[in-house]
């Protein structure tokens, strides 16, 4: 087995998929372990970026996939912008009401 067999130029799709899997797992860990809402939002951004890498990689490296992955990656970026704007407005609202931006303080609907 040769190191060159794992190189980017021989297997570009697999390299991109593994990279996106690692970034996805980092984002998943962030979402699972953080209590601060802004940190959780950062984890969500990591997950979205990992998904986006997959979209573009399949679109560019599989000829049968066509252009659709590229289009969806642009849509994902735009939706992430909208999501971040709304989420941050909510986070600031929580901070103004509770004095902290932790996700466990806003549990009024639980009762």
């Amino acid at each position: 087995m040769n190191v060159a067999d794992f190189s980017f130029t021989r297997h570009p799709l697999e390299n991109m998929l593994v990279l996106s899997a690692i970034i996805f797992c980092a984002g998943l860990y962030t979402v699972m372990t953080r209590k601060n809402a802004v940190s959780i939002l950062m984890g969500v951004e990591l997950i979205l970026n990992a998904a986006n890498i997959n979209f573009v990689a399949f679109s560019q490296y599989l000829p049968s996939a066509g252009i659709h992955g590229g289009v969806f990656s642009v849509f994902v970026i735009l939706l992430a912008a909208a999501e971040a704007a709304v989420a941050l407005a909510i986070i600031i609202g929580i901070y103004q009401n509770f004095g902290r931006a932790d996700v466990d303080v806003a549990d009024l609907m639980k009762e």
Binding site: F8, P12, M16, L19, I23, E45, N49, N52, I53, V56, A57, S59, Q60, Y61, G70, S73, V74, I77
Partner: peptide, 16 residues
């Protein structure tokens, strides 16, 4: 985010 942008560049997706 910059690293992911570089990955898009490697995939020749310049607009992304």
């Amino acid at each position: 985010l910059f690293g992911v942008a570089a990955m898009y560049a490697f995939m020749r997706a310049d607009f992304v």
